[in-house]
Amino acid sequence: MSAVKLMTLVRKEWLEQLRSFKLIWIPLVFALLGIMQPLTNYYMPVIIEKAGNMPEGAVIEMPVPSGAEVLAGTLSQFGMIGLLILALAFMGAVSGDRNSGAASLVLVKPVSFLSFILSKWLGMMTLLWGALLIGYAASWYYTWLLFETVDFAPFLLSYVLYGLWFTFILTAVLLFSTLLRSAAGAAFSALGLALLLTALSGIAPKYMGWSPSSLTGFAYEAVQGGFDASASFGWSIGVTILLIAAGIAGSSALLRRQPALD
């Protein structure tokens, strides 16, 4: 595997993201999601009042959320809508190139299969971590304007933990996109995996502490400042990183076994 060839492939991924406007609209959507959360929290009492279906004389009393709560809310928005958008944007990462035959033109050149997969993965990662940072920072800024400041350290820690969970799911998208011909199948398999893990963590948090999905819980705790590094925290990070590495290696092996589909 040569670093120069890998960079050539990654640059091609970036150019593709730019020309297909993914590089623009995905960060935009994340920024929008990030701004929406503090705004809706701030104006909720007004919205409910103006909705007009409250009984006469009802008094609305809502506790003002803390800045940390607003940011946790933002993260959970990202976790649903943001994840859906990313999975849909990258669902054809490998299968698209393979189905069209574009992959076979690249893979007859002296390029390693791992480079090909890694370039797709790195392309996803730069967009994911960038968009997440833009969206989350926007939310942080508006929370500071409308509510209160949240310290930088908890903000950063929660960003990294949530990003790691996203990385795990997008690696699953990549793996399924190498395994399956259908792009939609890849997106829904990965999203199904995310849902399943999240549900399992909800049902049996005690036994699922090691699961990547518990990273989201740790991220909420981290931003709210009540975070203590338990044993399962280390486990979940270790397991997640291991699974990500296995996902990349697995995709590369699948590609090697059958470089072209047509």
Partner: peptide, 12 residues
């Protein structure tokens, strides 16, 4: 190698 109907990236 030139396949029967080569597929490129149309945006390039």
């Amino acid at each position: 190698y030139l396949p029967q109907s080569p597929a490129f990236h149309n945006w390039m």
